[in-house]
């Protein structure tokens, strides 16, 4: 005789250990969950799309650009009285120095990406180090580090960047350090406060109750739980960094070699022909705006994905 399958048992009967939750069936991790929320967010798709195009263009600039960068072949097409606009040979026309505008913009993406990423990384690492020390160790270390960070923060970031760029001389590296240094306080404060609030949570008390080493608790438990907001901030800071590269170049503090295309400097150089050829400043300006928008959208979407409770 076959026994008919019994009616569905209560999932958590008094004798059976409580079963897995529906969630566990999906077998997803915390980051996977965030990834899924990210994929469903149109803001993230737009931001990610812009970023992908930007990175692609920056990486493959030599292949994509129609002409050689910094060519002076068409100098006569850019005079104080006439600037060649878009035509079949030059899709976006000729720039201030007689190079192909599209080519210069494409190579400019490369410069912006390198400076933006490297400077943000400089700010992120230095800031994260200070923030981890302050937030993890607390006490006197915290006081000293935060005093230093406060001083750094009290200097307007542009002024700080200008001073550093001026002190180190005109080079791309100086620009990166300058922009990165201005970001240190943002990352240090953010990570510190996240870590301090995390260190009051139950799992940290539980980890302490297990006698785990302090270093392990700080680096292995508190830090990984505090990284979310910092990653979001880094994405947002990339946008700011790209704008700041342009701003500092605009102020004449960037790369000295005129052969290196850079969006900020392209705006500056376009200024004296603004009356007759506004696109000289307009095209690089649009590039900066769109790229910054892309990183900002992605950063905001990341923030929501990592902390779904904060969603409106």
């Amino acid at each position: 005789m076959t026994i008919a399958p019994t009616a569905t048992l209560p999932p958590e009967g008094p004798l059976s250990p409580d079963g897995p939750t529906a969630e566990s069936m999906a077998g997803e991790s915390l980051w996977k969950g965030a990834w899924q929320r990210l994929r469903r967010n149109p803001m993230a798709l737009i931001g990610g799309g812009i970023m992908a195009v930007f990175v692609f263009v920056a990486l493959f600039a030599p292949l994509l650009a129609p002409y050689e960068p910094a060519s002076t072949e068409w100098t006569e097409l850019s005079t104080p009285f006439f600037v060649q606009g878009s035509n079949s040979e030059h899709l976006l026309g000729i720039d201030r120095w007689g190079s192909d505008m599209l080519t210069q913009l494409i190579f400019g993406a490369r410069q912006s990406l390198i400076i933006g990423v490297v400077s943000t990384l400089i700010g992120l690492f230095a800031g994260a180090l200070l923030g981890t020390l302050a937030g993890g160790l607390g006490g006197k270390v915290d006081t000293v580090i935060m005093r230093f960070v406060d001083i750094l923060l009290s200097i307007p970031s542009l002024l700080l960047a200008i001073s550093i760029a001026a002190a180190m001389g005109k080079s791309s590296f100086a620009l990166m350090v300058a922009i990165g240094a201005a970001q240190i306080p943002i990352f240090a404060r953010l990570l510190r406060s996240t870590m301090l609030s995390q260190s009051r949570s139950d799992y940290v008390l539980a980890a302490n109750a297990l006698g785990l080493r302090r270093r392990n608790i700080i680096l292995g438990h508190i830090l990984p739980n505090s990284l979310g907001p910092t990653i979001v901030q880094a994405t947002l800071n990339l946008a700011t960094a790209i704008i700041e590269v342009a701003a500092l170049s605009f102020l004449g503090l960037g790369e000295d070699d005129p052969a290196v295309a850079e969006w900020g400097r392209m705006i500056v150089s376009g200024q004296d022909r603004f009356q007759i050829a506004p696109w000289l400043a307009f095209y690089p300006g649009i590039c900066i705006a769109i790229t910054a928008l892309g990183f900002t959208l992605l950063g905001e979407a990341l923030r929501e994905a990592l902390d779904p409770k904060q969603r409106r």
Partner: peptide, 25 residues
Amino acid sequence: TMRNLRGQELAMVFQDPMTSLNPVI
């Protein structure tokens, strides 16, 4: 010394299992 005792000689189970485990590990 206290850290060596904790977890080895003295251990504790807390009230809220939802928050007492590290969510990212």
